[in-house]
Design a protein around this nucleic acid. Structure first.
Lengths: 176, 176
DNA sequence: CTACAATTGGTCAAATCTGACTAATCAATA
DNA sequence: TATTGATTAGTCAGATTTGACCAATTGTAG
């Protein structure tokens, strides 16, 4: 339902066609949202069937007709409902992408640390990229800030993991 | 690929049937992984087709036959590959579930704050639940710790958002 | 003992998602 | 001004995911 909320919220600002919507989401919002063009069209069509939006094919020249989606009153109501539901609840994001961590003890310490250093670099570059995305309007910007915040906590966590592994079975010189 | 890595990693510890795998994942690992039973079977069958596992139907009594999955050498190799790839890379988790935040400026301050307080409660109770899940063996436990860590950073972030909203247009008594 | 629920083990049709594709237009450049 | 490449706009078959279901077995309470 988060994706529907997003689309309704965007359409609420101004009615537009699927391409612009998905270009925006896959472009400017790329850092915080995963929603492909084809899925966007799918969802829009479903919402049209439900009555939350209406479609108008506007034919220009002889290119394939452009479909403009407009929010209906029912769509506005659904937006209000979804927004409140979304804000009031929290569902933990599952299976981020650290499953590998669960099996890290099958590797030698050296290899484990080398791999995690690489991971650390990926993370840093993502932080950089995300920090340099163009500023969004209004509270959309909060999403980007959240993303940066999350990436930074991941970085901090990763560092503690690396330290733990180093500490683990390397009580070196004066070990007790 | 994270899910395949997980299944291979678990099957590596000991060959077993789909039900036990998915019961474990949907049970003890529920906090950090989202993988339904039916998806697990689907993935297992796919991996069987690829040759990473072999299936043996063991018929006991006249109940529907039980399918036992065993890791092959190719499966072990793929595990090694996926593990390294997973550890060395980082893909940011997208569209957590705070899309609502992007549209929070369409609400009155009072309602926004009330809703976020509710969200805060959900979050707290999830932290509690996750903290009380039974301890996992070995580095599997790291996943749970990560989950708790993430939930706590989400809590901290949520609090800053709430504070920001309160501060936003409420320069009360001696406003300049 | 028996009936009623819970658990074990798995399947399947329907819903959803994806990558690859079409096809027109614009933009630039040789 | 053809040729090439990007951009706009959307479709679709095939892959994946889900929720609901089936059927046997194991408690378990009366």
């Amino acid at each position: 339902m988060e994706r529907e909320l997003l689309l309704l919220g965007l359409l609420r600002q101004h009615a537009t066609h699927g391409y612009e919507l998905s270009a925006f989401v896959e472009g400017a919002m790329n850092a915080c949202v995963d929603l492909k063009k084809s899925t966007a069209y799918f969802l829009l069509d479903k919402m049209a069937a439900t009555g939350w939006v209406i479609v108008q094919e506007t034919r220009e020249g002889n290119r394939p007709p452009r479909k403009t989606y407009t929010l209906t009153a029912a769509g506005e109501a659904e937006f209000q409902r979804l927004l409140r539901q979304n804000l009031a609840s929290f569902n933990l994001p599952k299976l981020s992408n650290d499953i590998g961590i669960a099996f890290i003890d099958t590797l030698s310490q050296d290899e484990a640390i080398a791999l995690l250093q690489q991971r650390r670099k990926h993370l840093l570059s993502q932080i950089n990229q995300t920090q340099h995305t163009p500023k969004h309007a209004g509270s959309l910007q909060l999403l980007i800030e959240h993303q940066i915040y999350v990436l930074n906590s991941e970085l901090a966590w990763l560092d503690t993991v690396i330290l733990r592994i180093i500490a683990q079975t390397k009580p070196p010189i004066g070990a007790e």
